[in-house]
Computed example of a mutant assay.
Amino acid sequence: MTNAASFREPGNWLGGFYELAIEVGPTGDDDRLAAALAAVWTAAGVEGCVTGRDAEPEEQPEAPCTLASLAGTGHLQGRVRLPEGQLVVCGCMVVREEDGSDWLDFYVPTGALDAAGVPARAGLMSYRSAVLDDWLASVATEAHRTVSFPLALVGWEVSGSTDAATLAGRPPAHRTVGYLLPQGGSLHYAQANA
């Protein structure tokens, strides 16, 4: 049986990402992006912070949870405990849109979710778990208390599927992913319903 928390298990990193994708704001605000990174890492309760996948976290130097560390390899990795108690590999990356927004993507690879036995509705091009959606929404809500942002999305491979300007403050009625939008100083969570 595969250990879902092992960095050396190549299957743990396969299959796409179950994500919390946060539209942090206009591209170029490094202080805001760095604050969002720290807030999400803390809110998710990530154990460790490293830049490599070829060795277990305890076998490599700890990396600071900063944009500079992230810029070196494109990803920061650690381990996170899921709501039902399974310890799995996880990571974070940044997407900077030219003339657009900075996005912070916190993810758990679906290979690790499969290894952990997380029940989900799998399809040809998707992966869905209401438990993970709710957990990632709670991570976004906690992070939003530190750094406000215009939009967060939760689900399988959600990054870049829309943006706050397109939504104009309202989630669609038919939702294949979860949407978190600010309303009255806090985040409103519109769960996936399709």
Rank of each mutant, 00 (worst) to 15 (best):
W156E: 14
C49G: 08
V147W: 07
L20T: 04
A194K: 13
A63Y: 10
G28H: 03
D99V: 12
F106K: 04
G25T: 08
G155S: 09
V24S: 13
L82Y: 10
L187Y: 03
T73P: 01
N3C: 03
V131D: 04
E58H: 05
W103H: 12
D114I: 03
A63W: 14
A140K: 06
G155Y: 05
W41E: 03
R128L: 12
D105V: 13
L167E: 14
L132C: 05
W41A: 01
E47F: 02
D114E: 10
L113R: 08
F7K: 00
G78H: 02
C49T: 15
V177K: 10
L180E: 13
F149I: 10
A39G: 02
L104M: 10
S148M: 08
A190C: 14
V108D: 02
G78F: 00
E56V: 03
W156A: 10
G91T: 08
E142D: 09
D31V: 07
Q183W: 04
S161M: 13
Y127I: 01
D114Q: 09
G25E: 03
Q60C: 05
G11S: 09
V147Y: 09
L124R: 07
S69A: 12
S159Y: 11
G45P: 09
A192K: 15
A44C: 00
T66S: 15
A164P: 06
G111K: 04
T166V: 14
P182L: 04
Y179N: 01
G78I: 01
V147E: 14
A137C: 04
L132I: 06
A165V: 14
A21Y: 02
V131Y: 00
S101H: 09
H188G: 09
S69K: 02
A68P: 02
S126M: 07
E56W: 09
Y107H: 09
A190D: 15
C90H: 08
A115H: 02
N12E: 07
C92N: 01
S161D: 10
V147S: 08
C49M: 06
P172R: 06
D99Q: 12
L136M: 11
D30E: 15
H75L: 08
A140T: 14
Q191C: 13
V177A: 12
C92H: 00
L132T: 02
A190Y: 15
C90N: 11
Y127K: 03
E9Q: 15
L136Y: 13
F106A: 12
G155H: 06
E47P: 05
L181D: 10
S6T: 13
Y127F: 11
R128Q: 14
L180N: 11
R145C: 10
H144R: 04
R96L: 10
A39I: 01
S138I: 00
E47Q: 14
E19K: 02
G25Y: 04
T42N: 12
G185L: 04
L20R: 03
A120Q: 02
V89N: 05
L180C: 11
S6Q: 10
D102C: 05
S148E: 13
T176F: 13
L87G: 00
A165R: 12
Q77S: 04
V118G: 00
E9H: 13
P61I: 07
P10K: 15
R175S: 03
Y127L: 03
W135C: 07
I22N: 00
E62Y: 08
G11Y: 07
